[in-house]
């Protein structure tokens, strides 16, 4: 009789597995990597934390190193991000999205997408740091903003900054400071979603 034993695939895609088993561009303590900018997001309490260091030459990411405290998809997605970002212009790198990283990995489960793909945010933080260190304006930031509350014109970047600085950590605080969700109120769910995501990212 035919053998009908069940055998499962690995938890994630083969690409995720490859990056998990052989992570690229690790920031080895022994290597003297001189970063022009460093960004860190997440916290150990949240279960995910990432640090990215970049070297910038001629407005491009010349080299990149990273460290991650997190699950397999956090490790794999940061590793994938590091390969994608190398050689990109700062503008391109700034616009790298979790969707692009996830796609390159061949997909991730929905619940992993939100909590573990933080590499793009760490990269953006590293670019911010580089620009700040060199007293340069940040021309990319606006381009990434997405309006969440249409009535009051509140963007995710505004929410991100308020959460990151600790000025607003609850829906009521956000609403009081930006006026979001005080007109039609339709965006309430998306505001809370963004709030929770940024609290997770910045460990607030």
């Amino acid at each position: 009789m035919e053998n009908r034993s069940f055998m499962a695939q690995w938890v994630y895609t083969d690409t995720v597995k490859d990056h998990f088993m052989n992570p690229r561009n690790i920031w080895d303590e022994k290597e003297d990597f001189k970063a022009d900018g460093v960004g860190e997001v997440g916290s150990l309490a949240c279960g995910d934390q990432m640090r990215v260091g970049i070297r910038v030459e001629d407005g491009r990411i010349a080299d990149l190193r990273w460290l991650t405290y997190g699950c397999a998809s956090a490790i794999a997605s940061t590793s994938m991000m590091s390969e994608m970002a190398k050689g990109m212009t700062l503008e391109e790198a700034y616009h790298l999205t979790p969707q692009m990283i996830t796609e390159a990995l061949g997909g991730l489960p929905e619940h992993k997408f939100h909590c573990s793909v933080l590499g793009d945010k760490a990269l953006r933080a590293a670019i911010d740091d580089y620009l700040e260190r060199n007293h340069l304006d940040n021309p990319y930031r606006k381009g990434t903003a997405r309006i969440i509350c249409e009535c009051k014109g509140v963007s995710d970047v505004q929410i991100e900054e308020l959460v990151k600085s600790g000025k607003a950590l609850t829906f009521d605080e956000l609403s009081a400071q930006t006026g979001c969700s005080t007109a039609c109120g339709k965006c309430r769910g998306r505001i809370i979603e963004a709030l929770e995501e940024y609290r997770h990212i910045y460990g607030k």
Binding site: P23, I26, D28, E29, E40, L44, Q49, T68, Y69, I75
Partner: peptide, 8 residues
């Protein structure tokens, strides 16, 4: 895993 980690 610790070598990969942000915290030592």
């Amino acid at each position: 895993v610790r070598a990969l980690s942000t915290r030592k």
